[in-house]
């Protein structure tokens, strides 16, 4: 565990907590894409199939449980919670997200490290995570007005990705045989998707004005 990996995990954790805070205390999921949240739940489900068979550390196990539990409870809140679901902006969240899964699955079947069910599902989760933010970004672009918590949520998610790249660079130079083409390519693509958002986030922060995306 290096400082970049820890910073990445902590910003990831913070992003989830910010979103849960918004949903749980304000009882609102305005501006949040259910499609993206459903994709994240599928990402964690398919990635952590080895939760009980491959022990890495207590830290890893607890974090996996947190990400699984939080992603499914967020989906539950938006779909089922009596108050929260009324704030869900269904008309702005029209991305056909399940169609994103097919290319990821096909790619995972052909491009993987080892052709076993667990390994293909893990690879699928890496590809799917890379593009899971797309419905959320489309929704942001449509609503344009972004409340503070939604902005912070997406900023923290992007920060998590950026820290993971620094973590890989660090590990590449400090560990022997640390080459992970699949995670690296998917991870860099994923991080680039946040680039545009980051630009406008920092602009609004620098000029101290409300975050608003251009039409």
């Amino acid at each position: 565990m290096n400082i970049f990996r820890l910073a990445g995990d902590m910003t990831h954790l913070a992003s989830v907590l910010v979103l849960l805070l918004k949903i749980h205390t304000i009882k609102s999921c305005a501006g949040i894409s259910l499609k993206t949240q459903e994709l994240f739940a599928i990402v964690f489900l398919t990635r952590y199939l080895d939760l009980f068979t491959n022990f890495i550390s207590i830290y890893n196990t607890i974090m996996k449980l947190i990400f699984l539990g939080s992603s499914f409870s967020i989906v539950w809140y938006i779909r089922r919670h009596r108050v929260v679901r009324r704030s869900y902006d269904k008309d702005q969240d029209t991305f056909r997200h399940f169609f994103l899964m097919w290319p990821c699955l096909i790619l995972a079947i052909f491009i993987n490290e080892k052709f076993t069910l667990k390994e293909v599902m893990w690879t699928f989760s890496i590809y799917l995570e890379a593009i899971a933010i797309l419905p959320q970004l489309v929704m942001l672009q449509r609503t344009r007005n972004i409340d503070n918590l939604t902005g912070q949520y997406i900023f923290l998610l992007g920060a998590y990705r950026a820290f993971y790249i620094l973590n890989w660079i660090y590990r590449y130079f400090t560990e022997e045989h640390y080459v992970h083409w699949i995670t690296w390519v998917a991870g860099v693509i994923q991080t680039l998707l946040y680039g545009d958002f980051f630009y406008y986030y920092f602009q609004s922060w620098k000029n101290n004005v409300k975050l608003e995306l251009p039409a």
Binding site: R5, D50, N54, I56, K64, E119, W122, N167, E175, T183
Partner: peptide, 10 residues
């Protein structure tokens, strides 16, 4: 490579 399939990241 040894680290390849460890999946020690989250």
């Amino acid at each position: 490579a040894k680290a390849h399939l460890d999946h020690d990241e989250l």
